[in-house]
Amino acid sequence: MADVTMTVWRGDPSGGAFTDYVMPAVEGEVVLDVLHRIQAGPAPDLACRWNCKAGKCGSCSAEINGRPALMCMTRVDELPVGEPIVVAPMRTFPIIRDLVTDVSFNYTMARQVPPLAPRAPDAPDGTYRMMQIDVERGQEFRKCIECFMCQDVCHVIRDHEENKTQYAGPRMFIRFMELESHPLDTNDRRELLRQKMGLGMCNITKCCTEVCPEHIKITDNAIIPLKERVVDSAYDPVAWLGRKILRRTKRSAAEADADAPAKTHPTSADGPTPTPTAGIAASS
């Protein structure tokens, strides 16, 4: 077989450049395999993340020929033959080194999601009854492997660092929708979504859905329904009146907000900005 040329971004926060590596082609390989051979040969310190090598953990996200993809699931023989394969780090996150980026933004946002507050059990033994059709809605979102490629491709934050303080992003929106559709949950996160998570900033270009390796319909099944629910909650006069006069079964946004662990946690986004060195706990 012919050689494969891999053009890999090498650098650190101070800058970097693309470097070409020419490697013998091996049948059936994925992009990550070639990178591993580069590490074992010409560039032993080439930095990239990976774990499962089977598309299940979401560690090895990168931009391959300009498109976000998992390096472990991108077969070399499915890319254009005879052309260099360009591998760059995800652009939305700060560089640590080479293909490794600081994805702590996502972990900081995850801390602000008020957790599940389950209703009372259905059976005397403390267990619940849920129908398959009802769990399947949430299961779609729980397929998420946290590769953060939807965050990477989202133009609200891709070139707008300033929006990261007020925008949860597609990954967190599907987490909100998962909880919103969870058969056991009693929390109401709609006002939090509207006021602090920047749901309104998404203008439904569906870029996130297109790159999702788990084929989660992020826009259609999570973001759009969330927008509808938030609008209903905030502006529907009947719902407003209902909240005023009827006994509430769900708690208000203020209560839900107060429940978010980030408010009390020492490593929340309220503290100093986490540095890549210490991951999400660096600010303590």
């Binding site: 599940l116 267990t127 849920m130 769990v135 909880l179 969870h182 056991l184």
Partner: peptide, 15 residues
């Protein structure tokens, strides 16, 4: 785990 949010596949009677 179920109380913490896990969504396991279900039997016909919801268990």
């Amino acid at each position: 785990l179920e109380r913490w949010g896990a969504l396991f596949d279900r039997t016909a009677d919801g268990r």
